[in-house]
Simulated assay, not measured.
Amino acid sequence: MTTTRRTILSLAGAAPLALAIGNPAGADPGYAKVPDGLKPGGELDKFVAELAVKDEFSGSLLLTHRGRRVLSRSYGMANKALGIPNGPDTIFALASVTKVLTALSVVQLVERGKLSLGAKLGPLLDGFAPEVGEAVTVHHLLTHTSGLGDFHMVPGFWETARTWSSAQQVMDGITQIIRGMPVTFPAGASHAYSNAGFHLLGAIVAKVSGLSYYDYVRRNVFRPAGMSSSDFYTKPQWLTDPRIAHPYTRPESGKQVDDIDSRYFIGTPAGEAFCTCADLDRFTQALLGGKLIDAPFLQLYASGKVPMPPPPGTPPLPGPPPVTLQCYGPIGTVASGQWTFGHGGGSPGISTNLEIFPDSRWTSVVLGNYDPPAALPIARMARQLITGQS
């Protein structure tokens, strides 16, 4: 059947209630508290359908309340060449949402007494200049206050990165590149988003745990959370596994193209784990349920540390502007009296967002395989409806 604007919008209406609701009204006492705008056929559902009609969103959305599915939608194609559509089981590259996994791994090691938040970088990883190794701490790396920037921007990085053919080459190669990067400000003096800092956190996880970074996350995050589809898939796997969505970017020519060929062998602690929407919800439930870290360390992980300005170019929402703070990995927000935390991600052909509402127990997951900011308007509307912003 050909998908038209009318058929897509009908899918956002009353017909698919059995597919979109894990527990129909009456079966779950919490369902009565779900805002109408978040239910199937509601404001958010129709908004996402409209974006899909305009080919502005391709991907999957999952909203859960207290671990129960409220709205699940998928649009667009995971693999256009093979005609594979996106679905609830499609695996997406996360981009920087990966940072919440890396940061959690660090906090786990702190909880287990194997690492200190005040530990200096130099004794953990050798080869750094004194102004970095003797000044930058694990705390600075977790809060983007290290003064280190983005290794992707180092001249020649991409040409070198495409020659790597193993996970160890990726980890060692990037660490060596970061050793030669200058700092843009003294540690702790300011806040600037740092992919370099989060890569180093992954290297620290490996050094302290005795496992590769990738194996540590598999054993200590994915496995105990029940994230059975999640992994750090390699570029060859991305090219051949029909479950994994391809990233479609639109260069200046205006025609969307598959961007896998531009990627390097495997993702890093700063970005490119792969998950389904359901797996990120499982991560949330395991995190809030004490399966990954105990309550005091969850508080440590997800509480604000450094004030942040709103992202440049972000259109304002109605009402008072949200207060945004850097946590230990996640980004925290106070919106309409509710504390939320999570992270967004973006790169060519990838736009993602995870937001957790610990008090009201909502989880919003948007995973897309179009250019940023495709996921952001959906995540922002979900937050607006969850928090009751008018």
Rank of each mutant, 00 (worst) to 15 (best):
M1I: 05
T7V: 11
I8Y: 13
S10N: 11
S10H: 12
L11A: 09
A14G: 10
A15G: 03
A15I: 06
I21D: 11
N23L: 09
A27F: 06
Y31H: 08
V34W: 04
D36Y: 07
G37T: 05
L38N: 08
L38A: 09
F47G: 03
L51P: 00
L51D: 05
V53G: 10
E56K: 14
F57N: 06
S58D: 07
L62F: 07
L62T: 04
L63S: 07
L63C: 07
H65E: 05
G67Y: 09
R68E: 10
V70P: 05
Y75I: 00
A78R: 02
N79C: 01
K80H: 04
L82W: 02
G83R: 10
P85L: 02
N86K: 06
G87V: 01
T90M: 01
S96H: 13
T102L: 13
S105G: 15
Q108E: 11
E111M: 08
G113V: 06
S116Q: 09
L117C: 04
G118R: 09
A119M: 02
L121H: 01
L124I: 10
L124K: 10
G127K: 12
A129Q: 15
P130R: 13
E134A: 15
E134W: 11
A135E: 15
L141Q: 12
T143E: 13
H144W: 12
H144Y: 13
T145Y: 12
G147Y: 03
G156T: 11
S165E: 14
I174F: 03
Q176N: 05
I177A: 03
I178E: 08
P182D: 03
T184C: 00
P186M: 02
P186H: 02
G188R: 03
N195C: 02
F198Y: 15
L201N: 02
K207F: 02
K207S: 01
K207V: 01
S209V: 01
G210D: 12
G210L: 13
L211Q: 09
S212A: 05
Y213Q: 02
Y213N: 01
Y213D: 01
A225L: 10
S229M: 10
T234H: 12
T234G: 09
P236S: 11
L239Q: 15
A245P: 14
S253Q: 11
K255L: 11
V257L: 14
V257S: 11
D258S: 10
Y264L: 13
F265N: 01
E272Q: 06
D279Q: 04
D279H: 03
L280T: 01
L280E: 01
F283S: 00
T284C: 01
Q299W: 03
Y301P: 00
A302I: 07
G304R: 04
G304Q: 06
P316K: 07
P316R: 06
L325R: 04
Y328L: 15
P330R: 03
P330N: 03
I331E: 07
G332H: 08
A335S: 07
G345H: 14
G345S: 14
P348T: 14
I350F: 14
T352S: 14
E355H: 09
F357S: 04
W362H: 10
G368N: 10
P372V: 12
P372K: 12
A375P: 05
M381N: 13
R383L: 14
Q384N: 14
